[in-house]
Design a protein around this nucleic acid. Structure first.
Length: 460
RNA sequence: GGCUGCGUGGCAGAGUGGUCAUGCAGCGGACUGCAACUCCGUUAACGCCGGUUCGAUUCCGACCGCAGCCUCCA
């Protein structure tokens, strides 16, 4: 039975979908003004695995991940670059897709954009004003009146008084209360703007997600995900908006993933201590990055370091080394395996404990290595590994391709020729020559493996 | 300052009131011409101080340390 740690209740809750057999999932996506970094990769991979696992568990999942394509940073960046907002956002949406695809992240069912959801947002703001949760101000902005919403603070575990005492923002004269947040911003002359009942302007960030999630999934849906940093104020505000407008609980399960850190400090754009997905993929193959992300529980912090990536690479290499030698049996489904399959399910059912699930996979690998090559059981276990891999997004590539890496032109030919030369030397028992050839290959970053009279190679 | 959460072996990282995590690395052995791969064996941990308990790394409390949020942020 699946249990999910719910940020709203601050405990693991048994997952019961609104509609039997179906799951509606909404995740806050990227603001597209720059390349994705490893922190973004974590969100994408984590919720990709959540989606894959829910589907593997028999649920019909509708997965929505929005795109914020209008916002202060986007406007600033476009101006800075001297390019149009649309050109900037289209460019970075394409880059984001490239990164996501590279990481094996399946596309969400829908990726609604803020700029294409204006009527929904405006309608929602009108409803909020009509119900007394929001007020237009003299300067053309519209604000949410936090004091009108009783549950404000229930997600982030704060109350309004605490928030006031911790207030660090300069008071904005247009607001009735410093805690009130903007739903609609009046446009400055040079800024892009949309027509609204309150004049030309653009939406605040928080209203986007409330409008897009309810448009795509309805007034109530099952799971809402995002990074921990969005819990307050973004998700708190989303609750205030959605529940204020609809008068019912909007989300049943809130999931927040932990941060990626560098040297025990949060990786973020504002701190400038980030690696882009592009940079990391230049050094490590995508599944190594996925494996690294899945080695820790999604709610724990994940410290990024070369050593961790190297460890992930070493671990994944062992799997692929095993899989290279064994053809997986077709049609093996882990759900039908009463030993490893059950343990895997138990791990994943426990709030998506991927670290524990990986240890089950390690046991399968070891069992497989003990089986005689070519045996039925070996083929079965290999098939089982592939089946687990489909849930975690691992073993999606050919073992040979993973182990040999990206081929440079005629590298393979050169290597094969040297292996042949070494083979000859070995047959002549000219060990010095054989070792010299191997050293040469080692210097090229090639590791040899002599197995069953056959020599295979891989990249270091 | 307020609110969350965390502190596990050399590293990464699960988990549990009393008996096994797992991976990387290390050590010993098998295999190998030697290696690599693989297998077998093996070392080693639960921040500190109290309390509850027959027994606590696991529960409770204090303390120390760290991180996140309170402002844009995945």
């Amino acid at each position: 039975m699946l249990q999910i740690h719910n940020s709203l209740t601050k405990q693991k809750d048994i997952f019961t979908p609104i509609e039997e057999g179906k799951v509606s999932l909404y995740v806050c996506g990227m603001t597209v003004y720059d390349l994705c970094h490893v922190g973004h990769a974590r969100v994408m991979v984590v919720f990709d695995v959540v989606t894959r696992y829910l589907r593997a568990s028999g649920y019909d999942v509708t997965y929505i991940r929005n795109i914020t394509d209008i916002d202060d940073k986007i406007i600033a960046r476009a101006n800075q670059n001297g390019e149009s907002i649309q050109s900037l956002t289209e460019r970075f949406i394409a880059e984001m897709h490239q990164d996501a695809d590279a990481l094996g992240v399946l596309r969400p069912d829908q990726e609604p954009k803020a700029t294409e959801s204006m009527p929904d947002m405006i309608a929602m703001i009108e409803t909020l004003i009509a119900k007394g949760f929001a007020y237009p101000s003299d300067n053309g902005d519209v604000y949410y009146d936090v004091s009108e919403f009783d549950g404000y603070g229930k997600l982030s575990g704060r109350n309004i008084e605490e928030l006031r005492s911790g207030e660090r923002v300069a008071v904005n004269e247009a607001k009735n209360d410093p805690l009130d947040f903007v739903l609609w911003k009046a446009a400055k002359p040079e800024e892009p703007a949309w027509e609204s009942p309150w004049g030309r302007g653009r939406p605040g960030w928080h209203i986007e997600c409330s409008a897009m999630s309810s448009t795509c999934l309805g007034e109530q849906f099952d799971i809402h995900g995002g990074g921990q940093d969005l819990q307050f104020p973004h998700h708190e505000n989303e609750i205030a908006q959605s529940e204020g407008a609809h008068g019912c609980q909007s989300v049943n399960y809130w999931m927040h993933n932990g941060f990626v850190r560098i040297d025990d400090e949060k990786m973020s754009k504002s701190l400038g201590n980030f690696f882009t997905v592009r940079e990391v993929l230049a050094r490590y193959s995508p599944e190594v990055v996925r494996y690294f992300i899945l080695t820790s529980h999604y709610r724990s912090p994940l410290n990024y370091s070369d050593e961790s990536l190297e460890q992930a690479k070493a671990a994944l290499t062992r799997y692929y080394t095993t899989l290279r030698d064994t053809e997986g049996q077709e049609g093996v489904v882990w759900q039908q395996d009463t030993d490893y399959g059950t343990r895997f399910r138990d791990a994943m059912d426990d709030d998506f404990n991927t670290a524990l699930a990986l240890s089950v996979m390690a046991d399968v690998r070891q069992a497989l290595n003990k089986e005689p090559a070519g045996s039925m059981q070996a083929a079965y276990l290999a098939g089982l590994l592939y089946s687990f891999g489909d849930v975690l997004g691992l073993f999606q590539q050919n073992a040979e391709d993973f182990l040999l890496g990206d081929q440079q032109d005629d590298l393979a030919e050169t290597v094969e020729a040297l292996i042949e030369a070494r083979k000859t030397a070995r047959e002549e028992k000219d060990w010095a020559k054989a070792d010299q050839v191997r050293d040469e290959l080692t210097a090229m970053g090639i590791i040899l493996e002599d197995n069953a009279g056959k020599t295979t190679w891989r990249k270091a």
